[in-house]
Design a protein around this nucleic acid. Structure first.
Lengths: 240, 240
DNA sequence: CTTGTAAATGAAGCATATTCATATATACTG
DNA sequence: CAGTATATATGAATATGCTTCATTTACAAG
């Protein structure tokens, strides 16, 4: 129970433990971020966190669990900021643009960690059973909601499944982020994202111009079909 | 020099060496493919190839070099088949469709290997200096050429850089391939690729060409429909 | 002050990639 | 064909790095 606040630095025992846990996570983030998961040594993480090697295992079951902790913090922030960012945006297009900008910015920043981070998860066919998958799932839920909303508003085409849109959106952005990071000329982030959105939005949005993508052919077919159907329904009650 | 062909199994010394090298690569492909790079044990590869553990290191500097050998074979085939496949295709749109189908099919098939395969390369910021990057570069050159050609023909929009198109194309397809592989319901590959192309082509192709987004399919349907309607109208002579 | 418990330590254990001293097979030479 | 140099092969030894564990230290309660 709480007796009194000791004037010394660390307060209660529990608090000191939490602090240490944070220190280890912070150290891990730094070391993972430097050269990726594989090259990161537990020894270095321990040293940075100011603990013995064995202590790390008092807090995390193994190296993967440590990565998961780092990834969880990252995804929590990412998801939160994504959800927060679209709140004030009124239309589907600007929401998607925001999500794209936000994603690329964050991913490009934490690239070394991320590229390897999800690897232990993504590698296997059982990816779906991993916690890493769940983190990602929660994150992309923000995107999914924007799309569903967009469909209700009539902004988004309905002939392509959500999952396909999601894959193209995030797959494309991830590659884009990587390219951005590698480029020696450090091409402008905003400009690149704009360009990506030019392709993506045209492909996903049902815009007035795109309604007529096929030159009205589909409409003509549908019209004609309706007429025939009506006629068949009214006349022949005999079908096979 | 070639003396005479010995009737025994292995011919010249050089040939036996090459055979063994191939055996090791084949074993490595199998083992990498099973559970990815990390979980693959050199010991198992050696056993499968019928050599001692140390022998592997006579042929390949280390595990990474072995992966590179496997990846090189994969990419060589991939690149060759891609280049071959588009040769007979006349228009930009069908070429892109072919490249997409081809890519997804191959990537989905060799997923466990690939997902980890490029990881040791992709992880670092020096990716561009790796041989893995070069393999990829050569491969996507096929795509780049299709796009450049498409631009000359006026099929492809010019307001978005090639690199952006490339990233979205292959990034999207990679994610799509992964999803396809994970799906328990094993969604139809062709259908999924079609859907992806619906987004990608609208985004990349120039409008006028997009008037005919479905390659004239709608027109064909309409024609057929008209004929059927006419026939129905004339035979069952009951009109309203 | 004593003692039980939580927390921490770093040396030992273990799994694997890689190296190396040694052995074997092959080709060449006289 | 024997002798020898060279290429090839071996598997035990080494190195590295994650993980465990017996021991120690710090803390809180009585």
């Amino acid at each position: 129970m709480n007796k009194a606040v000791r004037p010394s630095r660390p307060q209660t025992r529990r608090q000191r433990v939490e602090e240490k846990e944070q220190a280890i996570i912070a150290a891990a983030r730094a070391v993972f971020g430097k050269n990726g998961f594989d090259k990161a040594k537990i020894a270095e993480i321990a040293k940075r966190a100011g603990v013995a090697e064995g202590t790390v295992y008092l807090y995390f079951e193994n190296k993967n669990a440590l990565l998961l902790a780092v990834a969880t913090e990252f995804y929590d922030r990412l998801t939160h900021d994504a959800a927060e960012g679209i709140k004030s945006l009124p239309d589907t297009k600007s929401r998607l643009a925001f999500l794209a900008r936000h994603h690329v910015e964050r991913v490009a920043a934490e690239w070394p960690m991320l590229s390897t981070a999800m690897m232990p998860f993504k590698a296997s066919d059982e990816y779906r059973q991993t916690e890493g998958y769940q983190l990602n799932r929660t994150y992309v839920e923000v995107f999914d909601q924007v799309i569903r909303d967009g469909i209700n508003r009539g902004d988004i085409r309905t002939d392509v499944p959500l999952s396909v849109m999601r894959d193209i959106f995030y797959g494309g952005l991830e590659y884009g982020a990587r390219t951005l990071r590698m480029r020696p000329d450090r091409a402008d982030l905003d400009e690149t994202v704009d360009q990506m959105m030019q392709i993506l939005s045209v492909g996903m949005l049902v815009k007035p111009a795109a309604v007529d993508t096929d030159g009205g052919a589909a409409d003509a077919v549908l019209d004609r079909l309706e007429k025939i159907a009506t006629r068949l329904e009214t006349t022949a009650a005999t079908t096979d």
